[in-house]
């Protein structure tokens, strides 16, 4: 069974803060699902290449050109906090008011 410490570590990576109750229920749910997934170990995959995508994709390149979309105002209006037309966020490299 996956440990509570592991759950906390994964939550940290996923930027989720979880309550004690959530940690406990995730511990049960994830363990159940991971047990089910174990059945993939029955498949012989020794000579198989991974498939990330089901179509034969090739890179499609085009010029990186700017276009007027007329969406600017709507995008700015969606900012949770703004100063004039700028998106206001907390300091990236500092903690709080430091």
């Amino acid at each position: 069974m996956i440990s509570q410490e592991e759950i906390k570590y994964i939550a940290h990576l996923a930027k989720l803060s979880l309550s004690g109750k959530e940690i406990k229920s995730l511990q049960e749910n994830l363990s159940g699902i991971l047990d089910y997934i174990e059945k993939l170990k029955q498949v012989d995959i020794s000579a198989i290449q991974p498939l990330s995508h089901c179509m034969d994709l090739e890179n499609e390149l085009r010029q990186d050109e700017t276009e007027e979309t007329g969406e600017d105002e709507a995008i700015v209006a969606a900012f949770p906090e703004r100063q004039d037309r700028l998106n206001k966020v907390k300091g990236v490299f500092i903690n709080g008011d430091q």
């Binding site: 996956i2 592991e6 759950i7 994964i10 939550a11 990576l13 996923a14 989720l16 995730l26 994830l30 699902i33 991971l34 997934i37 993939l40 170990k41 498949v43 995959i45 198989i48 290449q49 991974p50 498939l51 990330s52 089901c54």
Partner: peptide, 26 residues
């Protein structure tokens, strides 16, 4: 999100994600 992050995390990536991609090909 938790399950996906777990499957992609260092140390488990091969065992889960790569394995699943191989089974996907089959």
């Amino acid at each position: 999100i938790m399950l996906g992050t777990y499957a992609l995390s260092s140390g488990f990536y091969e065992a889960y994600y790569t394995r699943a991609q191989k089974v996907r090909r089959l």
